[in-house]
Amino acid sequence: MSVEIALRAARVRYGPLEALHGVDLPVPAGTVTVLLGRNGSGRTTVLRALAGTVPLSAGRVLWRGEDVTRLRAHRRARRGLCFVPDRRALYATLTVAENLALAARDRDVSAALDAYPELRPLLGRPAGTLSGGERRMLAVSRALLTPARVVLVDEPALGMSPAVAARTHRLLAGLGARGAAVVVAGQRPPAGLPAGTLAHVLRRGTVAFGGELAEFTPG
């Protein structure tokens, strides 16, 4: 199992506070890695560090062995990284159709609408008028429409019903099965992921557990 992207001894500071304390996190290609932790544990900062939206104060980001620590977020995106944050993942004043078109970049948007048929009757609605679950469906659609090598999704199922949440995790697992390195971050172990899914648990900016998701017992 080859490592697609990784943090090595990564530290991140927000002013005087250090949010990550030397985190090592390998993300294999062709699978889903679950990043678990309570609010304030550092899981969102890990995604931002991988995406390049926050700088490291120490350590490195390696992409297929190449040091990309100083590579800016838009350059990482051009190389094939898709980051779906938990907030501000959409253009609120644009319609659902316009948001999908921007994500697809002249490609067919039917994959997103097949994955989330709930969005079809909402195509003419401004994204800012959607419910929380509908906004997350639209946000996750970005990952489904982008041929990315690395997919980072923070709280993908926020506001969704259990059935839609499980479908969402299956869709993200499908991206992994097609070769992408997928990282899903949340507070609780998600349903709908295949056996062998990897997991890392963060506590106060450090990795407290690493292994298969089935081995993790919430405490």
Rank of each mutant, 00 (worst) to 15 (best):
M137I: 06
M137N: 05
M137C: 09
L138P: 02
L138V: 05
L138R: 00
A139W: 01
A139S: 11
A139H: 01
A139P: 00
V140C: 10
V140F: 12
V140H: 03
V140Q: 07
V140G: 04
V140P: 01
S141L: 07
S141G: 13
R142L: 03
R142W: 01
A143E: 03
A143G: 09
A143T: 06
A143R: 03
L144H: 01
L144T: 04
L144G: 01
L144P: 00
L145Q: 02
L145N: 00
L145V: 08
T146I: 06
P147Y: 12
P147T: 12
P147M: 13
P147A: 10
P147E: 13
A148G: 07
A148I: 00
A148Q: 04
A148S: 14
R149H: 13
R149T: 11
R149C: 05
R149N: 08
V150D: 01
V151P: 00
L152P: 00
L152N: 01
L152F: 08
L152R: 01
L152H: 02
L152D: 02
L152S: 02
V153P: 03
V153F: 03
V153H: 02
V153K: 04
E155V: 06
E155C: 04
E155N: 04
P156Q: 09
P156G: 09
A157F: 02
A157L: 09
A157E: 11
L158Q: 14
L158C: 06
M160K: 07
M160W: 08
M160T: 02
S161F: 09
S161T: 15
S161M: 11
S161A: 15
P162C: 12
P162I: 08
A163S: 14
A163M: 12
A163G: 14
A163P: 04
V164G: 01
V164P: 03
V164T: 15
V164I: 15
A165S: 14
A165V: 04
A165K: 03
A165C: 05
A165P: 05
A166I: 10
A166M: 08
A166S: 15
A166C: 14
A166D: 06
A166R: 11
A166L: 10
A166W: 07
R167A: 05
R167T: 10
R167W: 11
